[in-house]
Amino acid sequence: MKLLRWLLGLLFIAAFLYGNFFIYDGLILYKLINVILFCVVFVLYRVLFGPTAADRIVAVDIMGILIVGLLAILGLVYEQSFFMDIGLIWALLSFIASLAFAKVLEGRYLDD
């Protein structure tokens, strides 16, 4: 049963990678951005169906760091440096947000 689920997941990922790298016709950087968006789909699965609140907080924190990498590649595509400004601000805000969520989960107030 466990092995069957593993094989199904492998098939799903392999189908995505084949379609992305061999069928889809675009710049190589666009293909890499598609891989990161596929990762974000997995993270959203954990946000929606995470059994506890801590799982959701972990997923949101991880998504912030993934988005920073995505914005760096996007800046490389358009040859504009302001995408990295957005990335820095996003990293800062997701850090503060995960600290605040952790404090709320612990049962304390923010000025404690």
Binding site: A54, V58, D61, F95, S98, L99, F101, A102, E106
Partner: peptide, 8 residues
């Protein structure tokens, strides 16, 4: 942030 989340 990993440290804070795990402790909480």
């Amino acid at each position: 942030s990993a440290h804070a989340i795990s402790r909480a």
